[in-house]
């Protein structure tokens, strides 16, 4: 085939296109809705959520997870572009971990040492580490799909950021259910669960996001 013929046929395919940015937002919203539906069907918010909203630890963990999801969204969206090696928005990703570390420090200062271990182990650890990845599955699938429409420079990193975003969405929902509000619990088990989803994303990205 001559290159001129190829060009003619590419022009015939129709240069018009589906813009990626709105598609990316739509995929994230749809993923969140799927996760939310699954959340309501399985765990749902904790029964005393009205009172919990007035406690600092509950609000804080929900907000931190939400911040993780939102900041990751913007960095991930940047990474669908081929010319983006390091997103300029990348420093945003520090926000959630720093807040979490800060809250752990405060918890260690205000709580006596003999309460640390019970607070870290909590009641719901097996739930936390299984339900967060479970809620993250639909968002992860959708994010990987939308990354396939994009042109990420590095498939592994793109998959990892998709996993981090999905993990952030799953963790935000799970946080509304869980009774273990101590930053010690959140920093340990949420981190473990989200890391797992991130790793899964990286693994799948390596296979699915080449172009």
């Amino acid at each position: 085939m001559k290159t001129d013929d190829l060009i003619a046929s590419l022009a015939a395919d129709g240069p018009a296109h589906r813009p990626l940015r709105p598609l990316f937002a739509a995929a994230a919203i749809l993923g969140t809705l799927c996760a939310f539906a699954l959340f309501m069907l399985t765990l749902g918010p904790r029964p005393d959520v009205d009172q919990a909203l007035h406690t600092m630890r509950f609000d804080f963990k929900c907000v931190v997870m939400f911040i993780l999801a939102v900041t990751t969204f913007f960095v991930a969206r940047d990474m669908t572009r081929p010319e983006v090696t390091r997103s300029r928005l990348r420093p945003l990703l520090w926000a959630a971990p720093l807040l979490l570390i800060l809250s752990v420090a405060v918890e260690l200062i205000v709580m006596p040492p003999d309460t640390w271990m019970p607070r870290l182990i909590g009641q719901n650890m097996p739930y936390c580490t299984t339900m967060i990845p479970l809620f993250a599955l639909a968002p992860l699938a959708l994010m990987l799909w939308v990354f396939r429409q994009g042109a990420p420079q590095n498939p592994v990193r793109a998959g990892a950021i998709a996993g981090l975003l999905a993990g952030g969405i799953g963790a935000t929902l799970y946080a509304v259910h869980c009774f273990d509000d101590s930053p010690l619990f959140v920093a340990t088990w949420y981190t473990l669960a989200i890391t797992f989803v991130t790793g899964l994303g990286a693994l799948l990205g390596a296979r699915l996001l080449r172009w």
């Binding site: 296109h17 990626l20 572009r81 081929p82 042109a151």
Partner: peptide, 23 residues
């Protein structure tokens, strides 16, 4: 050329074109 065509939706129209093309 085929990749440029299939990934054309990843160029943000408010961004420079050449860095995208180079990438």
């Amino acid at each position: 050329l085929l990749a440029i065509h299939l990934k054309r939706q990843t160029w943000m129209q408010d961004q420079p074109f050449l860095p995208w093309l180079n990438a």
